[in-house]
Design a protein around this nucleic acid. Sequence first.
DNA 1: CTGAAAGCGCTTACAG
DNA 2: CTGAAAGCGCTTACAG
Lengths: 357, 357
Amino acid sequence: MAVHAQAKGVKATAGKPRLEDVARMANVSPATVSRVLNHPDIVRQELRDKVSKAIVALSYTPDNAARALMSRRSRTMGVVVPTLGTSIFAEGIEALQSRLSELEYTLLIAVCQYDAERELQEVRTLTERGVDGIVLVGGSHLHETYELIRRMQVPFLTTYVSESLNAVPAIGIDNASATYDMTRYLLQLGHRDFGVIANTQSSSDRTRARLIGIKRALEEEGLVLEDTRVVNCTHSVEQGRRGVKELVTANPSITSVICTTDTLAVGALAGARALGLRVPQDLTITGFDDIELAAQLEPSLTTIGTPAREIGRLAADCLANAIAGIPIPISTALPYQLIIRGSTAKPRRKPLRPPPR
Amino acid sequence: MAVHAQAKGVKATAGKPRLEDVARMANVSPATVSRVLNHPDIVRQELRDKVSKAIVALSYTPDNAARALMSRRSRTMGVVVPTLGTSIFAEGIEALQSRLSELEYTLLIAVCQYDAERELQEVRTLTERGVDGIVLVGGSHLHETYELIRRMQVPFLTTYVSESLNAVPAIGIDNASATYDMTRYLLQLGHRDFGVIANTQSSSDRTRARLIGIKRALEEEGLVLEDTRVVNCTHSVEQGRRGVKELVTANPSITSVICTTDTLAVGALAGARALGLRVPQDLTITGFDDIELAAQLEPSLTTIGTPAREIGRLAADCLANAIAGIPIPISTALPYQLIIRGSTAKPRRKPLRPPPR
DNA sequence: CTGAAAGCGCTTACAG
DNA sequence: CTGAAAGCGCTTACAG
């Protein structure tokens, strides 16, 4: 008992100051200190000043755990992204965090490596940590993930796609429309003989939408994209490199290769080079995302620009609004950009020489 | 009063189950449920099973705010990075988060854009959120930042540099030694006439160390790096582009340009191209970091590889260990790699033509 | 090994 | 406008 009391005594002097310490110093009740912190307008000026002084004097900061316990609000949001290695996700997160910081929220981040099970696990952790809102990427998630978040009764939105699924608000771009535009541009250049490299193994909904856009544009011209013209793969530079070889070997008449991401296109560029093909003279190659690298490559990459920062910033605002009772628009379609650079040109006239070596 | 009671009744059925609900269902005291959760070994098997079943039946998850309030542990770590736009930081964060997740910690992330004031502000937020540990990048931080963290009495470490400052444990590489090796390699190729592009405006300690390494190697050969040979700039591709023009214009005899980061080197490569200079035939250019882009450029970039993933993973382990009472080594120097690619060659024989256009 | 009780540091009806 | 009191959902000495 005596020991306990002493321990408490030590704590009071050495430990972090508590609300009570501020109250004592300012000669008011703890309730008043709390009010100064949370609803300053309902406290008389005089007391407000006394309390403020005491807070500064003790350099008091409220304990967030206690605060969260009472208010049922952690002032923390959670996000799960497939990876940070792609600059559009890195940029989006950066903007999300910056904006949240301005709104006085912190950001809990998790990476799932394009693995839906892992995403569920991370979402579970986030909900257990009591986040006030959740941001995911894309529209394909495990059923349990949706359920879990719904049970939490927490604002939730999906990013990088504009199409809402399962009534979850979405902020992003119309992927199908973007690849449709890209394909129309290539058709206008005169291309009729296409190959596609698509990371269908992962992030399935965005890739699927991108494939749909390509096919729609081709069909309008009476062209059909045969299965042999589509390489399905995972998401890596290496897969792009392999993909272009596969396509050109199987279909030497191909003049244009559409990749569903820039990462794949970077690989395709390298693969074309390895085959002795000049881009864009011998082969046109396009990407999607406009990663930082795209403009710096030789040739620079024709691609679709995604407004990643804008997505992140908007996501932050929408979550904060939702908590304040303002509903999140079910679908927010942001403008994308068709960025024409050096990797696209009119189709070559002559057939391809058989690959050297 | 009646209303209040009713509200409570509703809550008990509709809201999240609490520890007490589990206890009631399992016919034990709340204390026992808590023990099953935290110290299962001191609970009799039979009760343990009953409690476990009740937990599953109610799909109970403990409230972290309450838990944190009692245990003084949030099971959350915090990290502040200069940016996520550089792949080495993105990779490091990814590895840090993955490992923390395995250790059942969550990660609060903040970005400071190379701004020390902003870093302090974000650290302040992290400490107020009650993180159990903090990771920063590099060794140059505001005095207040160190003080703040010290007061928090929370494990703290610095990453990407191996040199410990202010007694803060460091995990990273020896930057000076890395650029020393790089410079020696260039000297061995025959270069004697150097220029340097350095982002001295930001992340000062790492850049400073890198400059020191360069100068040490040169001095050993009796060479001096004059001030006109060093372009001081901020961190962007554009600055690298500008830097190389400045250097070559002022000193046409330069044969080799050392950049303190890959981002600058990417700009330098583009700048050289714009000047009509071939790399590496006319000009040798080197970077630092081995960002993803480095291998894909044309020419590919000679650079220093930093073990970012390893740094992140180790940081997670060290923080967790520190909480368990195992002290963090004051300095952990990880191996870097000199990666020789296509942007470096022997110096040209002839003087540079005056820049075309 | 288990339960009753106190308490972590706050917030917010309630009563003045 | 302010204070005394209850309580948020847990954990952990303490006593059995």
